[in-house]
């Protein structure tokens, strides 16, 4: 396998578009992923994350724009690119009637790896995924977390340079998610480039060096989690609860205090550089909230600010 030139990005997309009939799933996006980084697509359901991932995975041809993966064109070199990718799809594609080990063996054969190599590799991967003691169990009764770890182990059978993870921890309990994150950290440390989609902010903050926020098929923000918070939120958020059903009335009374106030049904969010100072200013205006909480801004604040609070179904 030829080493990839360091200066060239591993993935580069220009005006990348995916249309299904009249519906535009991805509306002309630009991004680059560099070797060794963990890159995230963050966005609500229907933002176009999975469509983008499927194009990167060379299973869905772009409708327009250019896409280069490992310096190759998916339209011309799809199979060659896929041979160097690992893919963890949103829905597991395991054969639940085969054993854990057989799933890896069969998958290794898809990449044309000799049986002896796959056998050896399977043992390593089972160890990595902490599934060695379940190696000869049928997949069907395993827990969601185990199945997900198996899917990840399987995706590594061909020693991929680039690992695509579409919502890797959706539907898992907190313990299972942390085990999975730990495994992904190890992969990243060993030099595998990770590209993942998620709608979990904590996941994005934990794993991603850089991310883009997608909404309605477009990229609405780009940067490291820290940069995004700095650009699209303030350093801190002051949460105020008042003894009233209508918090909008209180927002009026606080007008001009901070650059941005958000009214939620049960509280006000004041975006501020210094929560304590702002809390004092609120009291100085003669207001007495039921509760006051000053906290750091999170990616979730950025996310909700950029993509709105309306439920998308």
């Amino acid at each position: 396998m030829a080493p990839h030139p360091v200066d060239r990005p591993l993935i580069s997309a220009h005006q990348l578009t995916k249309q299904f009939g009249d519906f535009t799933a991805v509306g002309g996006i630009d991004f680059e992923v560099r070797a060794g980084e963990a890159f995230g697509f963050l966005g609500p359901n229907g933002a176009g994350k999975s469509s983008t991932m499927r194009m990167i995975g060379c299973v869905s041809p772009p409708s327009a724009g250019t896409l280069r993966i490992l310096g190759l064109d998916p339209a011309a070199d799809g199979p060659q690119i896929r041979g160097r990718l690992g893919v963890v799809p949103q829905r597991d594609t395991l054969d639940e009637e085969l054993t854990v080990r057989e799933n890896i063996l069969v998958y290794g054969r898809y990449f044309g790896l000799p049986r002896s190599v796959v056998r050896e590799r399977a043992a390593e991967l089972l160890d990595f995924a902490q599934l060695t003691d379940r190696a000869d169990s049928i997949v069907e009764p395993l827990s969601g977390g185990m199945k997900r770890r198996l899917t990840i182990a399987r995706s590594l059978v061909n020693n991929p340079e680039l690992l695509l993870l579409d919502e890797p921890t959706t539907g898992l309990d907190p313990q299972a998610r942390h085990v999975l994150w730990d495994r992904l950290f190890r992969l990243k440390r060993s030099g595998v480039t990770l590209v993942l989609t998620t709608h979990y902010m904590d996941e994005a903050e934990q794993l991603c060096d850089r991310l883009v926020v997608m909404d309605g098929g477009r990229i609405v923000a780009e940067g490291s989690p820290r940069q995004l918070i700095a650009e699209h939120a303030t350093r801190e958020v002051l949460e105020l609860r008042f003894p009233a059903d209508d918090h909008a009335a209180y927002a009026v009374k606080l007008d001009g205090l901070v650059p941005r106030i958000e009214v939620l049904p049960d509280r006000l969010l004041l975006y501020t550089e210094d929560g304590d100072t702002t809390a004092k200013a609120v009291h100085d205006r003669g207001l007495a909230p039921l509760s006051v909480l000053a906290r750091r801004s999170t990616l979730e604040d950025v996310f909700l600010h950029l993509t709105g609070r309306t439920l998308i179904d």
Binding site: R82, G83, V87, P89, T93, D95, E96, Y110, F111
Partner: peptide, 14 residues
Amino acid sequence: WQRQYHAMLAAPLG
């Protein structure tokens, strides 16, 4: 259901 074809298409198979 089991989606084996999808797994194959993620590998170099067409």
